[in-house]
Nucleic acid binder design. Structure first.
Length: 430
RNA sequence: GGAACGAUGGCAGAGUGGCCAAAUGCAUCCGCCUUGAAAGCGGAAGCCUCGCAAGGGGCCGGGGGUUCAAAUCCCUCUCGUUCCGCCA
């Protein structure tokens, strides 16, 4: 959530920042929030005054009783009873306003970072680095889509995956399955120098999925286990962000860095028929996520670090890649500033988004109530959260199959993965 | 799934209608002492919110109720612990 106080003290600034996203309705919601907030404060002040009087009278009753003055006690009780009536109705109104304001605020997006590039949508995202590792041209034998190569090699069996679970579920087998696991191991090992490995739950509560901004707006995108009130996580960002929810951290504990390898589940509602072949878009996939809970002053540098770490893993795999920055029109609800890493897949002839690194400012942390205490100072502050995909398996896996395909149809195992693949150097054509 | 007990400040833990924002201990911060530290001694200090301020209001797991007045009584939900049952 954005800070209501900022909306009070600098309404024009908030308005201008949000306007950069190019969604007129956001500004309507913003006005609604400002109006509700003003009304709420009016009512709350009035309610508080009534409460003060009731509190004073209650004390007076106790004192009068003790002094043996039954008549005075009785009089104070009568007055207090009357005040109680109006106090209750004011309190009810205040509660209503508060929950209405909360509902509106939950759906208002984060403010873009001033340096985030302006733009109307995906097509306006600028390339900020690369292409790197990009050959001048690709030989014909690399112009084969991964689903054809992998199926022929017997390492991808989507027919059976579909039999088991339905469309958009994949199944890797043999060295294909091993390579999927190897990719995760590589990503974990490359970040183990600074990140604590977590194995979080992959089914989470509604509160947890709300903290990251996935609810209430994007309920249709997540798999729900309604009977138990649980949701399947779309990314490890969800449980990792809530790791310290409701806690007050010591400033010296920041930045807190954690990582996790989990399955991720996405309904991909509305994308039926798109990218359904191969592994470009699936309901369930594996990913290693790295996440930091940082002091606001550390956040900008942390964003750079996360980008560098995610980029490093792609680079060590020898894949052609580039980095784009997400423009204001394409920025996700919770996002303050984001970079995507894209890998080129010659078989599909497409740039594939394989990693997204983002800074959420205090937007998620306010929802999750993650605070920190400055050493030697009173009070608490909201922390900042950042995260990035250290490695998302399916698209990287697909890009390897396409980029490392040889003329005989076999696929060379990238050097960096060999230690995790029992020494296999090639996935042989049978 | 059944039963019992529990949930209080950063942590531990008293408190069973008004004198309670709440004892005490640990941790924290400031000072004294010390070459420095520890120990010791003295002091400060919960969180949220409204307000320029003075000050006000709220918060004892969440929600509801009883009462002039609730951490305290009642209902309900959630979570935890232990025992039984089941089980990788």
């Amino acid at each position: 959530m954005i800070d209501v106080r900022l909306l009070r003290t600098d309404p024009d600034g908030v308005r201008l920042a949000l306007a950069r996203r190019g969604q007129p309705d956001l500004l309507v919601q913003l006005d609604k929030a400002a109006h509700l907030d003003a009304r709420l404060r009016e009512i709350t002040a009035e309610r508080d005054e009534h409460r003060r009087q009731v509190n004073d009278l209650s004390k007076a009753v106790g004192l009068a009783r003790k002094a043996g003055d039954a008549q005075a006690a009785e009089a104070a009780m009568a007055t207090s009873r009357e005040l109680g009536e109006s106090e209750r109705s004011l309190a009810a109104e205040s509660d209503e306003l508060q929950s209405a304001l909360h509902d509106v605020l939950l759906r208002i997006t984060n403010l873009p970072h001033p340096a985030a590039p302006d733009g109307g949508g995906e097509q306006d995202n600028p390339v900020v680095k690369g292409p790197i590792n990009m050959p001048a041209s690709f030989p014909e034998h690399q112009r084969v889509p991964h689903w054809e190569t992998a199926t022929a090699l017997g390492i991808l069996d989507n027919e059976r995956g579909t039999k088991i679970s339905g469309a958009m579920f994949t199944l890797q087998r043999g060295l294909g399955a091993t390579m999927a696991r190897a990719l995760c191991q590589l990503a974990l090992d490359r970040n183990a120098d600074a990140f604590e490995e977590i194995r979080p739950p992959t089914l989470v509560s509604t509160a947890t999925l709300t903290a990251t901004g996935h609810l209430p707006k994007f309920a249709d995108d997540a798999f729900a286990i309604e009977r138990d009130g649980l949701w399947a996580i779309p990314t490890a960002e969800v449980p990792l962000t809530s790791l310290y929810a409701g806690e007050i951290l010591d400033e010296t504990a920041l930045p807190a860095r954690v990582m996790a390898h989990t399955s991720c589940f996405r309904r991909e509602a509305g994308s039926a028929g798109r990218d359904t072949r191969g592994m470009l878009r699936t309901h369930e996939f594996d990913k290693v996520e790295i996440l930091a809970i940082a002091h606001p002053d550390q956040a900008a540098a942390m964003l750079d670090e996360l980008v560098a770490r995610c980029e490093g893993t792609i680079a060590v795999l020898g894949l052609p890649y580039r980095i784009i920055e997400i423009c204001t029109g394409d920025l996700g609800q919770s996002h303050h500033r984001s970079f995507d890493i894209e890998v080129y897949a010659p078989g599909c002839d497409r740039w594939l988004e394989v990693s997204s690194v983002s800074w959420f400012s205090d937007y998620q942390a306010r929802r999750a109530d993650i605070r920190f205490r400055r050493t030697g100072q009173k009070g608490t502050d909201i922390a900042h959260t950042l995260n990035g995909s250290a490695l998302a398996v399916p698209r990287v896996w697909a890009a390897i199959i396409e980029n490392y395909r040889q003329a005989d149809g076999s696929v060379v195992v990238p050097e960096a993965l060999r230690p995790y693949m029992r020494g296999a150097t090639v996935i042989p054509a049978t």
